[in-house]
């Protein structure tokens, strides 16, 4: 309700002993919003690309994901092999994305693929990542018609395909890519940044994997 709105905003202004921001003060915050200042730079997010990739893999594995570094031609084969290694069914729900369609899935005759959003009964999903963050081994998923959010969350096992070229240093680099792709202040509905499998420490402060989201996360880091 508009009166509730003005009650809160006027209460804030009364406490701050000023009216609505105007003049130079307003220009200062507007310009801060238009060109956001970065925080203190984090050295480990500023490495050369090859070291970023290595750091990404190291953190992802430390934080309970598994990583396979493969060439682009090996992606479909590695997905099948991973499922076999872990005694998982050769059946996946896959994001209908141009990135993933670029790989030759027809080579995997045993693999059954359903494209679309996640269902409660899915055991394994395969999605592409918008980016990877070297600083913490985090994958970034941007929602859209090529990437339903439910695929990141519902299956027990989440297989992520991440191109080396999409691995960046820190969060700030991801924001830059999001702005370049979607516009300065146009975000996709959901951006999930995911670091390893779902976990909880809610019973006796001991970590258990697979609370609500995937119990396993396997990341294919792909070089061209």
């Amino acid at each position: 309700m508009s009166s509730d709105r003005s009650q809160i905003l006027n209460g804030i202004r009364r406490s701050l002993q000023r009216g609505e921001l105007s003049g130079a003060a307003r220009q200062a915050v507007e310009s801060r919003l238009a060109t956001p200042p970065r925080g203190p730079s984090v050295a480990r997010a500023q490495l050369p690309q090859a070291e970023k990739v290595a750091l990404f893999c190291q953190w992802a594995e430390t934080l309970n994901a598994t990583v396979a570094r493969v060439g682009s031609a090996e992606v479909p084969g590695e997905v099948t092999a991973y499922l076999m290694r872990n005694n998982l069914p050769a059946s996946v729900a896959m994001a209908p994305s141009p990135l993933l369609e670029g790989y030759d899935w027809s080579s995997q005759q045993m693999l059954s693929i359903r494209r679309g959003r996640g269902e409660g009964s899915d055991q394994v999903s395969v999605t592409g990542a918008f980016a990877g963050i070297a600083e913490t081994g985090t994958v970034v998923m941007a929602s859209g018609p090529d990437h339903p959010v439910s695929l990141n969350l519902l299956p027990d096992t989440h297989v992520v395909v991440l191109r080396e070229a999409d691995i960046v240093g820190g969060y700030e680099d991801v924001w830059g890519r999001l702005r370049a792709r979607y516009g300065k202040d146009r975000m996709p509905r959901t951006v999930n940044t995911i670091t390893g499998p779902s976990r909880t420490g809610d019973i006796e402060q001991a970590m258990e994997l697979g609370a609500h989201g995937p119990r396993r996360m396997h990341i294919l880091v792909v070089h061209e």
């Binding site: 200042p37 925080g39 700030e172 999930n192 670091t195």
Partner: peptide, 29 residues
């Protein structure tokens, strides 16, 4: 801004649970 979020996220998980990063950080828009 998102840049401010990056700073706060770096101190949040480490202060809370000592994690490098929580498993899920999600932006809904």
């Amino acid at each position: 801004t998102l840049e401010d979020a990056a700073v706060l996220l770096r101190v949040l998980a480490r202060s809370a649970t000592g994690q490098e990063s929580s498993a899920y950080t999600t932006l809904n828009t």
